[in-house]
Design a protein around this nucleic acid. Sequence first.
DNA 1: TACAAAACCAAGCAAGCGCTAGGTAATAAA
DNA 2: TTTATTACCTAGCGCTTGCTTGGTTTTGTA
Lengths: 194, 194
Amino acid sequence: MTIPKQTNRRKELVTIAAGLFKQESFDRTTVRMLASATGIKSGSLFHHFKDKEEILVAVIEGGLETSIEVINKQTADIEQVDQRLFAAIYGHLMTLHGENKDAHIVSIIEWKSLSTLSKSHLIRLRDEYETIWQGIIEQALEAKLLEGEAHLLRLFVLGSLNWTIQWFKPEQGLDIEQLAAKFYQSLTHQVINK
Amino acid sequence: MTIPKQTNRRKELVTIAAGLFKQESFDRTTVRMLASATGIKSGSLFHHFKDKEEILVAVIEGGLETSIEVINKQTADIEQVDQRLFAAIYGHLMTLHGENKDAHIVSIIEWKSLSTLSKSHLIRLRDEYETIWQGIIEQALEAKLLEGEAHLLRLFVLGSLNWTIQWFKPEQGLDIEQLAAKFYQSLTHQVINK
DNA sequence: TACAAAACCAAGCAAGCGCTAGGTAATAAA
DNA sequence: TTTATTACCTAGCGCTTGCTTGGTTTTGTA
């Protein structure tokens, strides 16, 4: 696999593409839409990307990398289990609903649009993210904050959080941190102590 | 809105369409694929449906109706709150992973592919389903089985369950009832008593 | 057995799709 | 100032898409 050069222009294009892919879905976003949103002609896109799928791969890659950064930063200096769990929840919701959210959302909903080859390349990033979560959940289980099996719990929890992209609008009263607190409460049957 | 006649052939087509939409997504399923899977020519499809979207609407409509039937039947004769909650979870997972699952899955993942008009028609069915859930969750809250707000809990729970379509394969050891029990346990911090 | 309605086919149109080829303009290193 | 590289445009090709039209076959009903 050749490593595509990370020019500034390319990054710009990827950001714009993320927005469109999120809004319209990958399939319904045409190269002409991408081009006009960027201010260039459709043919010029293929100077930066070999095909349309490579744009999607770049978007998802960026989304996953940011998620990993955020969760690491969020949970870095926290020792207490309950605070770590809350920070992970909050971090995840932030990458989905905060600034620059588009890429992570796309990485979730457009996974099926990837070819097998592209998936195998990106799956390492996804695994890395899930491993971090797995660790936090195992800690929380030991501390009796949660009930069940770590593996299934991770899927239940991340599923629930990911699903928020279907309904949560930060501007409708509840903000992201409040949502995180509510989720933490329903999950652990305890109130988080901030 | 004219009511489309419910011929047998139409139902057949809808079932086949559900399978393809689930496997390939609505956008990537062409009318030619639908036709050849049914054994007719692509043009003949439009004798039964006025356009491609009407097929999707029919699929989703069927999926939602079945879900409503199933949850009603599952929870009908059950009085105990814990049993009702478990039955609802189990029922939901059954419509997603049991026999004839395709339609309900499509109704979940292809919601965004609908036009505004079609959505407004189908939203009543979805509301009906969610109202049933809402009631069960409120009961469970009163019984202290759950923690939090009913409205948010419903979204968390259904999100988590819906997300199982991304990873759960009944043939990989765990069956649907076991999955339901595990989920019930992680949600309520109690073991279900069957 | 006649006949209307329903189901289907053959052929293809117009529009939109991803992508390419061959050239020009801008930028930067030598 | 030359030269190489990068960024972009013009024009359009080949293909697929959803869907239509006008006619034929099948089916059910009286």
